[in-house]
């Protein structure tokens, strides 16, 4: 092994060692990839829309539910986007007896997450 090569090897090993030290911390801080509106809508820990709403125009939506109105033609049904946002944020305002969870009020979804879900649902 020639001298320069050995030094290069040692330096790169040192760097690797340093990287090994640093990377766990970096990995912990690295943000998870942001879920899409559809992912939030489908995720049963998040929006879980499919528990109660069918999506007749969405082939990926697997559900037999018939509890709440199917999510279709949403842009026509909610010409005012804010109204749809409000319905997801706290549905008990419009109907005190509703079974729909108040996603915003109770902190089930963040405001940013609700906006993504609204964008997705609006396209259905």
């Amino acid at each position: 092994m020639g001298k320069p090569l050995a030094i290069v090897t040692a330096v790169s090993l040192s760097l690797l060692l340093a990287a090994a030290f640093i990377s766990p911390a970096r990995a912990a801080e690295a943000p998870q990839p942001e879920p899409t509106g559809q992912e939030l809508a489908f995720d049963n820990r998040k929006g879980n829309c499919l528990a109660c709403h069918a999506m007749p125009g969405e082939p990926k939506a697997v559900t037999n539910t018939n509890i709440a109105p199917p999510l279709i033609g949403m842009a026509a049904r909610f010409p005012d986007r804010r109204k749809l946002y409000g319905q997801i944020w706290d549905a008990t305002r419009a109907n005190p007896d509703t079974a729909m969870p108040p996603f915003g009020k109770n902190g089930i979804l963040t405001d940013a997450e609700i906006n993504k879900v609204v964008d997705y649902v609006y396209g259905l």
């Binding site: 001298k3 050995a6 030094i7 040692a10 330096v11 040192s14 060692l17 030290f21």
Partner: peptide, 23 residues
């Protein structure tokens, strides 16, 4: 041989520096 010693020194040295920094 010599170069290997240098390499080991560098490795050990960097390890010490890292440890000290962490501490």
């Amino acid at each position: 041989m010599n170069s290997c010693r240098i390499a080991i020194c560098l490795l050990v040295g960097s390890g010490l520096v890292m440890g000290a920094a962490g501490h």
